[in-house]
């Protein structure tokens, strides 16, 4: 009891000291405060620039490790190397005369991404519409966690599912010779791209605003007509950004395509036959890097594939930024 009161007394005395402190600071205290404040701000700013540093380091190191792939042969060889990389469909790094043509890999990446988007964009946009315009509040509260959990499942677990469950199913029920093929990879990538597409497009459509919808209803339009003719056109840049972000998710995905696509580096022909094995850029890096000695031509070639991928996603990212910025600006105008 006494201890508590002693402590209380002490606190009171401290508080009293606070109150008796002069309100004006001395010049030296003022200066110290000013310097400390700016020093603190600078430190905070420096910490914040870590992300900038990270981006620059990523670009610097990926470019540094991929440049020797082009420059080892000297001036004239550079063009030949560039041409080989982008137009040769043969990726045979361990042949006696190695070929580093990434065309089949680039096509493979785009192929599964397109396959994924064909499924994910309609389903994702419809689900986005459902969440933004159709579902009542309570239902939305249930649907959101479902989509979040879909996004939370790690990519390697999806890959595991593709190899262990989906591939045998495809083999026995659809009669494919191999269950690990472009169809398998595309389906799983579609599921993985869905959460991104849904949440971004739902945001875009919610942001269109209530007034514009009510105006449309007021003119006698049905809900479907309102959504198709008013909401989607008004939120189109956000929706496009959603598609691009979903595309980025699919093209940058590694584990699923590595496990489920069959890893045969050739351009699929005929192009519509999804039961063929393909190989993507990401799977090539993941699969080859483990057994590649450092500073070999193959090592540099893999970094060049990584650089291609990085530039690809970087430009897609800029595009989505631009579109989202446009969407935000449009909202501001209204």
């Amino acid at each position: 009891m006494t201890e508590v009161s002693v402590q209380g007394e002490k606190r009171n005395r401290n508080a009293a000291a606070e109150f008796t402190r002069p309100l004006l600071l001395s010049p030296s205290e003022d200066l110290a405060g000013y310097v400390m404040g700016h020093l603190g701000l600078t430190i905070l700013f420096l910490i914040t620039t870590t992300s900038v540093a990270a981006v620059f380091l990523i670009f610097y190191f990926v470019i540094r490790e991929s440049l020797p792939f082009f420059t080892t042969g000297g001036g004239a060889a550079i063009l030949a190397r560039v041409r080989e990389f982008f137009t040769d469909p043969g990726w045979y790094p361990s042949a006696t005369e190695p070929r580093y043509g990434a065309l089949a890999l680039i096509v493979g990446s785009l192929y599964v991404t397109a396959g994924a988007l064909v499924v994910a964009v309609p389903v994702g946009l419809l689900a986005g519409v459902f969440l933004s315009d159709i579902a009542p509040f309570n239902l939305r509260q249930i649907c959101k966690p479902v989509i979040e959990i879909l996004a939370a499942i790690p990519s390697v677990a999806y890959g595991f599912f593709a190899v262990m469950v989906l591939a045998p199913w495809l083999q026995t029920h659809l009669g494919f010779s191999s269950g690990t093929n472009a169809l398998n990879a595309s389906l799983i990538l579609a599921v993985m791209a869905l959460p991104t597409i849904i949440s971004v497009s739902e945001d875009a459509m919610t942001a269109v605003g209530r007034e514009i919808r009510e105006a449309s209803y007021g003119l006698g339009a049905t809900r479907a007509e309102t959504i198709i003719n008013v909401v989607i056109p008004a939120g189109h840049s956000g929706i496009l950004a959603a598609v691009i972000l979903g595309m980025m998710r699919a093209i940058g995905e590694t584990m699923v395509v590595w496990m489920a696509s069959g890893n045969a580096s050739r351009i699929p022909s005929p192009w519509w036959d999804l039961s063929q094995s393909i190989r993507t850029m990401t799977a090539t890096i993941a699969g080859d890097m483990g057994e590649t000695p450092k500073d070999s031509e193959h090592y540099y070639a893999l970094f060049t594939v990584g650089l291609t991928l990085l530039l690809f996603t970087f430009s897609l990212n800029l595009l989505s930024e631009y579109l989202l910025g446009k969407a935000r600006a449009g909202r501001g105008r209204r």
């Binding site: 992300s51 900038v52 990270a54 981006v55 990523i58 190191f61 990926v62 490790e65 990519s155 980025m248 093209i251 940058g252 995905e253 590694t254 990401t282 890096i285 993941a286 890097m289 893999l302 970094f303 990584g306 991928l309 990085l310 996603t313 970087f314 897609l316 990212n317 930024e321």
Partner: peptide, 15 residues
């Protein structure tokens, strides 16, 4: 840069 960082494919992080 933060947005770029979020969009870098995970395998490129590995590289």
């Amino acid at each position: 840069c933060i947005n770029t960082l979020a969009g870098v494919p995970s395998i490129v992080y590995g590289l």
